[in-house]
């Protein structure tokens, strides 16, 4: 009985000391969890940052006849086994482009608009003014893309490459105006903290 009590008294504090209490960390920071089989937050941040750097350095948006360029965010397909919202990437790109005045995202265009209420209001206004369509909505570019993965394994070491690809199409010419691929490759046998 005494032995059992002593063992419990020793083991419980040790087990408590081993567990990691929850605490806030920087989003996508160097203490983030890195997983081989999933797309992590830092991968999404790296992809959106890489896309923006390429887009801004090329100056494609500045070639639009009106400034800021009107941007339509189209279909971006997640073709990986990792479940995450594409908006995690696109909203970060939007924030940078819209808030810095380099692009204006059109949310009232097409058959499945992002903001159907605003589209209805614009249509009503155009109808009352005798116009066929709202004159203010005239997108210059459309953003589409795909995220894919290539997974390989050697023994118990796993490797995954997640490829983020985006394309900007000039809606006046129908021709691709900009494209970018950002790769994220991870290797390991188990998830880890930090990168």
């Amino acid at each position: 009985m005494l032995r059992t009590t002593t063992a419990i008294c020793i083991l419980v504090p040790i087990l408590c000391a081993c567990s990691t209490p929850a605490r806030p960390i920087e989003t996508g920071g160097i203490e983030s969890i890195t997983s081989v089989d999933d797309v992590d937050m830092q991968d999404i941040l790296k992809a959106s940052s890489g896309m923006l750097e390429s887009l801004l350095s090329q100056g494609t948006l500045k070639s639009a006849p009106r400034q800021p360029a009107q941007l339509l965010i189209g279909s971006i397909v997640n073709d990986t086994s990792s479940r995450f919202d594409i908006g995690e990437m696109t909203y970060r790109m939007r924030e940078q482009l819209v808030n810095s005045g380099q692009a204006a995202v059109v949310t009232t265009y097409g058959t499945t608009p992002e903001d159907a209420t605003a589209q209805d209001a614009l249509k009503r206004k155009a109808f009352l003014e005798g116009q066929a369509a709202p004159a203010s909505v005239d997108p210059d570019f459309s953003l589409t893309g795909k995220i894919t993965q290539v997974k390989r394994q050697a023994g118990n070491v796993k490797q995954a490459t997640y490829t983020f690809r985006l394309t900007l199409t000039n809606l006046r010419s129908g021709i691709e105006a900009w494209t970018k691929v950002v790769d994220v490759t991870k290797q390991g046998s188990k998830n880890a903290i930090g990168f």
Binding site: G28, G29, I30, Q42, L45, K46, S48, S49, L52, E53, R92, M93, E95, Q96, F195
Partner: peptide
């Protein structure tokens, strides 16, 4: 301020 300022490996 920018969403492009991220940690990269």
């Amino acid at each position: 301020p920018s969403t492009m300022s991220v940690w990269k490996s």
